[in-house]
Amino acid sequence: MTAPDTVQQVVIIGSGPAGLTAAIYAARANLEPLVVEGVVEGGPTGGQLTLTTDVENYPGFAEGVMGPELILQMRMQAERFGTSFVTEDIVKTNLDQRPFTLETASGGTIATHALIVATGAKPRRLEIPGEEELWGAGVSACATCDGFFFRDKHVVVVGGGDSAMEEAIFLTKFASKVTVVHRRDELRASQILQDRAFANERIEFVWNAVPTEVNGTDGQVSSLTLKDTRTGEVQDLPADGLFLAIGHIPNTWLFDGSLETDDDGYLVVEEPTTRTNVAGVFACGDVMDHTYRQAVTAAATGCKAAIDAERWLAAGGAEG
């Protein structure tokens, strides 16, 4: 670990809508923010939006916008006002001492007075037999990446939220049939996505069921063992692919023992601010929001975090 040459005013960990919006605001406040855009540990650089296609609910885009394009625009906007970027994962943080220090995967050290945590969340896995063994051989968490390989095949999507419906609808471009398996008898997804999924002739639903095993033949997914959540009855559902959309786990492991989390593992902030339990550390986006989890709410909390950090620095927080 090499010693840092300079101490940053504010460092932002994360490069999704929360982190990039924080960067735009911090840059415009002349704080010359440094964004550490992780590579893989917390999900892809640019966040979950980079794995989506059409984003139809982000205000300002009447005809919708592609997720990766939206992120690219935010990044360019942040860069225009003087944000710098480091494309690396952070592997360790020290928030016990001022300035805070962050260690990068290549062994570098970054020191900063204020820290904005915008590390987001990554897809939850089922943790059932066969899932790990058949990962990449029919099991996937990215329909936009892997849908292509399931042309004229039957795929299963597990989940009942917006992501599950978006994945199911997207997969009908390729698959001959998409079966949505959901543990309850109704969806959590927004009405417009539910309507679209129900109207799609290629989408079928299996209600009140949870997968208990992924089965393979010749190293590829061949079926899914399902258990009825009410009767306990077990059935085998033949399928060529399995796409997971069962929610996310917040990326907080870098802060174990230093930042407070709630029962679900999300960072706790002093509402309505973005202040964490460590003065000078602010949290925004999906790592602290288990209620809304939208691109626009992530951006909104990113804005709040930058303003909170700016005020904290202006009030002499870093000297205190």
Binding site: V39, V40, E41, P44, E88, D89, A105, W135, G136, A137, G138, S140, C142, C145, D146, F149, F150, Q220, G241
Partner: peptide, 23 residues
Amino acid sequence: MSIPTLLVFKGGRPDKRIVGAKG
């Protein structure tokens, strides 16, 4: 069936498979 996938070929046969993005 998932990309990115990296395969290493040795002597004309796949010898190693790495699925998904990594640092």
